[in-house]
């Protein structure tokens, strides 16, 4: 389990206290008519089945096989999403204004939110722990290559690294490069190669 700086001291029952407190809070909110007994489960279920990185993966796979679609996706991400057969909501919560930037042999993009954890929910779902951790947020803006190498990605000095910090209302994500050796693959097979990390710019796509 991730921990914070090891010099900080915590109670032995740190997680048990939080688990009890959040259950106490949720049960009080249900009893007082603020939410229902299904509200939290429904929200979590929505991110399991409707909104998640599986949507982003389909968009990237389509962009890899269809250059015209790729151009439309880069020009207007939200409009391009409407071309695919997604459930309702691709311009819903935290996806109202999305933009995607393309990795090429000349440019490598990474997303970050130094103030919090802004993230395009419809295409990528919810952000992984590392994206929210202050160490990543602090380091990636000044030393992106070192950070990438800790993720196992080496970027040549000849490649321009662009870091996109979401401090206002745009939610950014990354169109990674299609890997070699995928010429015969269809969209579903290509989509299965994608990870959230690849669509955030801290991983390359592997076959």
């Amino acid at each position: 389990m991730p921990s914070n700086y090891p010099g900080f001291k915590y109670e032995a029952n740190r997680e048990a206290v939080s688990a009890a407190k959040v259950k106490a809070l949720e049960s009080l909110l249900i009893e007082k008519g603020i939410i229902t007994s299904n509200t939290v489960d429904n929200i979590l279920g929505y991110f399991e089945t409707e909104m998640g990185p599986f949507n982003g993966a389909k968009l990237v796979a389509r962009a890899w096989v269809d250059p015209d679609f790729k151009a439309r996706l880069l020009a207007d991400c939200n409009a391009a999403c409407e071309e695919l057969d997604f459930p309702q909501g691709m311009s819903g919560a935290e996806g109202e204004h999305m933009r995607i930037v393309e990795n090429t042999p000349e440019v490598h993009n990474i997303i970050v939110c130094t103030l919090c954890s802004c993230y395009p929910w419809p295409t990528l779902g919810l952000p992984p722990y590392w994206f929210k951790d202050p160490t990543f947020r602090a380091r990636v803006v000044r030393e992106p290559r070192k950070v990438l190498s800790e993720f196992g990605v080496e970027i040549d000095d000849s490649v321009e690294v662009r870091v996109w910090d979401s401090s206002a209302q745009i939610r950014w994500w990354v169109l990674p490069m299609r890997p070699e050796g995928t010429d015969g693959m269809g969209e579903a097979e290509l989509a299965a190669l994608l990870t959230p990390e690849a669509m955030m710019g801290v991983a390359t796509v592997k076959v």
Partner: peptide, 30 residues
């Protein structure tokens, strides 16, 4: 935060929630 020096290597934990209780507070906020 941007540019702080002297920090640790990146924790590359990819889970969204590292404790089950965290899901509940995310849901309440949403």
């Amino acid at each position: 935060l941007g540019g702080l020096e002297g920090l640790d290597p990146i924790n590359t934990e990819t889970q969204v929630f590292v404790e089950p209780w965290e899901q509940r507070i995310f849901g309440i906020h949403t």
